[in-house]
């Protein structure tokens, strides 16, 4: 069984919000209708979004780091928002695991938003139906698009390639490899919702550099006329590798 999902690399997300604007642009222009805004160019702008980037500061000053945290529907494998829906407007597709809302059936009771532990659902204040990330379902199967562009708009837009898209049930897919090899984790696993989207953690990348790797003590290539000054006492790296 297929379970499409996003894997978001917190290590490289720079918080540029390109995924947010790209998501909004694609999904407000689609056949499902616009995503309404209020006061978009005025005081207190607000509106409907499928995807938002939040920013957290982790640690105690001065040892802090900034974590930009894109959040959108996690397409849980056991989505708590689906069984509470009284009309069946909220459903999870058998074929690819995408959780969707049928805007023609939704009565706008907001019950599903109470049942989502991640706060990923938003009501459209003007169309009065519940909206959420569709994983660009109207894009990823569109055969009129080039093969390489059949990805969610946010994935296409990300300048640092922090967003990966694929089938997390296929053990050899790019996303499965990333989860497996780079410590991908789900959000709030304690509730048993089994989110399909995963996050790749921040990583500390350190390399060990010895001083004589920076200073070529014996200048083996003789590029310059003059020999480099000997500043290191005793044998150097070059002494052991070049003779």
């Amino acid at each position: 069984m297929t379970q499409l999902a996003l894997v978001i690399d917190l290590n490289v997300c720079v918080g540029c919000h390109a995924c947010v604007t790209s998501c909004k642009q694609w999904n407000t222009s689609g056949p499902a209708g616009y995503m309404s805004d209020d006061n978009p160019y005025d005081k207190d702008p607000t509106g409907t979004f499928f995807n938002r980037v939040q920013t957290f500061e982790v640690g105690d000053y001065p040892n802090t780091e900034t974590v930009h945290f894109p959040k959108s529907c996690l397409h849980c494998e056991d989505p708590p928002c689906v069984p509470v829906c009284p009309t069946g407007a909220s459903y999870k597709r058998e074929s690819d695991g995408i959780v969707l809302v049928d805007y023609d059936k939704c009565i706008g009771c907001k019950y599903c938003s109470w049942a989502c532990p991640y706060g990923m659902r938003e009501i459209d204040e003007h169309q009065k139906v519940m909206k959420k990330c569709t994983l660009c379902v109207d894009r990823i199967y569109d055969t009129s698009l080039p093969e390489a562009e059949r990805k969610p708009a946010c994935v296409m837009a990300c300048p640092t390639n922090a967003r990966l898209f694929g089938d997390v049930h296929d053990p050899e897919s790019e996303v499965s490899l990333a989860i497996r090899e780079r410590g991908g984790y789900p959000l709030m696993p304690e509730w048993g919702t089994k989110p399909a989207n995963h996050y790749l953690p921040r990583r500390k990348t350190r390399i060990t550099i010895h001083e004589d790797e920076l200073i070529r003590a014996d200048n083996p290539l003789k590029k310059e006329r003059k020999q480099a000054p000997h500043t290191i006492e005793g044998p150097t790296l070059d002494d052991s590798t070049m003779w």
Binding site: H17, D44, T46, V53, Q54, E122
Partner: peptide, 8 residues
């Protein structure tokens, strides 16, 4: 929170 004037 990723927005200026509140969300749903």
């Amino acid at each position: 929170q990723g927005f200026m004037a509140g969300s749903f």
